[in-house]
């Protein structure tokens, strides 16, 4: 337990030197590197915080943009629905119009078909009627009816208009006019003379008469004068009635 002054003094000096050495070689570099690391960590944290803030801003921005997109989508959907409704209404109206037109066409077609059917039926009925009348008149026809129709022919010739009379006469004066007389029953001599006299009074040219019998006329007679045909028979009347009725319809 001796106290040595040299050791005491040198120990003080040694310790001060040791402090200097360690401060220079140990504490300072280590504290600097720790400080740098802390600064790096703080910088990283600050960067991370900055990035986080940027990310938050981006997220907020994207959320807002997404909301806007949603709104635009809703608006577009509503507009599209309205457009679709309008288009649907337009198409429905057009379809209804077309349907109405088609319905009208069908109605007209049906009406026309009905009319045609009716006309056909009427025509057929008229034909049948003419046929039945023809059959009936064939049964009922006889010399009496022939005689009456002959009188009717004479009356018609008597009341023939002047224009017709002139047209019956050919341009050549000397030309013989051939007249074909067709009757359902044979004409008596008296009736033939009456008819020839009547015709000679109408036509100034020389006349030649040819007599024929055609039962299809049922009753009455038919005169073929050149291009002219004068009818006073039942068949012609029946056909005339049927055609007249058809023309009216």
């Amino acid at each position: 337990m001796e106290f040595n002054l040299s050791t005491f003094v040198l120990e003080i000096i040694n310790f001060l030197i040791l402090i200097w050495i360690l401060q220079r070689l140990f504490y300072k570099p280590l504290l600097n590197v720790i400080a740098k690391r802390k600064q790096s960590i703080y910088q990283s944290l600050a960067d991370a915080k900055n990035l986080q803030q940027q990310a938050e801003q981006q997220r907020s921005l994207y959320e807002n943009r997404q909301k806007l997109w949603e709104q635009e989508k809703q608006t577009s959907l509503i507009a599209l629905e309205l457009q679709l409704d309008a288009e649907r209404v337009t198409q429905l109206n057009r379809l209804n119009t077309d349907l109405e037109q088609e319905r009208q066409k069908a109605k007209v077609t049906l009406s026309r078909q009905q009319q045609e059917h009716q006309q056909q039926a009427e025509k057929q009925a008229l034909k049948n009627g003419a046929k039945f009348a023809s059959l009936l008149l064939q049964e009922a026809a006889g010399p009496e009816l022939e005689g009456r129709l002959f009188i009717l022919m004479l009356n018609n010739l008597a009341t023939l208009p002047e224009v017709c009379k002139l047209s019956l006469t050919p341009l050549e004066i000397n030309k013989t006019v051939a007249i074909k007389i067709t009757s359902a029953f044979p004409l008596s001599l008296e009736m033939s003379q009456q008819l020839e006299q009547k015709l000679e009074s109408l036509i100034n040219n020389r006349l030649s008469f040819q007599y024929h019998q055609d039962v299809a006329l049922i009753a009455g007679l038919r005169l073929d004068i050149g291009s002219w045909v004068l009818n006073a028979n039942v068949k012609h009347e029946l056909v005339g009635f049927a055609e007249l009725d058809y023309d009216y319809n």
Partner: peptide, 12 residues
């Protein structure tokens, strides 16, 4: 264990 050393440190 040397008093001179500990004294030096204490004086420091």
């Amino acid at each position: 264990r040397d008093l001179s050393v500990t004294s030096a440190l204490a004086v420091l």
